[in-house]
Amino acid sequence: MAVEAMKPPPVATPDPNLSMGIQLMALERRERLVHGLKIALVWIVLILILGLFLLSLDFDPNYMFQHIQFVLAGAGLTIGISVVSILIAAVLALLGALGRLSTNSIAQGISGFYVSLIRGTPLLIQIFIIYLGLPQIGNQFRIHGYIGLANLFTLTAIQSGILALSINYGAYMTEIFRAGIQSISHGQREAAEAMGMTHGQTLRKVILPQAIRIIIPDIGNQFIAMQKDSSLVSFMGVWEITYRANRLARVDSKFMEMFLLAALMYWVLTIVSSWLESRLEKNLARAYER
């Protein structure tokens, strides 16, 4: 793509400096536009290369298109599980962060233990422990006649998935919340406390509203990661995107078609969520614009 230097329009203006400014602005805008177009072109070329490569093998795009609906039907579950889990995880993370920052030795101990244990073990193992391991405890309770407790320890696949994702991401996000809270200048807390606010009031009214704005991009990042990690619940036979794709792939031996389709859906989901996140970020930044 040829980038020609734009010729200055031969317009006579009373202020020669003004026309120079306009000219520079136009040049700059043009440069930005060309840069953006080039990047878009690179994307298109890469997608074309990938597509041609796939078509040269025995790839069956029609099979993909025919089963979009079947796989897409799982998107609701994927989104639902992710949204509920990120909300619970945020609550856990807030509690975890407060524990880590607390002067209370018990709170500090509990939250440190939680983060260490959960971050140190694989998510898939956690899912299996909750889904397959906990019912063993439930059975013991059932034998001794505690039916209510027994049911509490026997979770459905979806419940187990949400619980595992929440606990797991809660541990990672504890560190994000802690860093966010610590990033608010000490003067903010002092100003609030000098006016007689308690620790809790200071946290709710002054620290958290500012900290959350700062960590929104990180939470968005975690949400994107979680949408993809939610594919692990397919191991328990939850009919979300991955499970549906996997099922068809195995029936008709169309692995590339179905997993590529699933991958595309996750990709679109994450693009939408990062767009939503940036909108939210801009909204929250409004008070900070001059």
Partner: peptide, 29 residues
């Protein structure tokens, strides 16, 4: 603390609140 009012070198206004909200926040909470 309720008997004293403090003014800091670095102002320490709450950036997420408007000027009026800054002034009335402690009255309310």
């Amino acid at each position: 603390r309720l008997s004293t009012g403090m003014v800091f070198q670095e102002f320490n206004l709450f950036p997420h609140m408007t000027v009026l909200e800054n002034v009335i926040e402690a009255l309310v909470t």
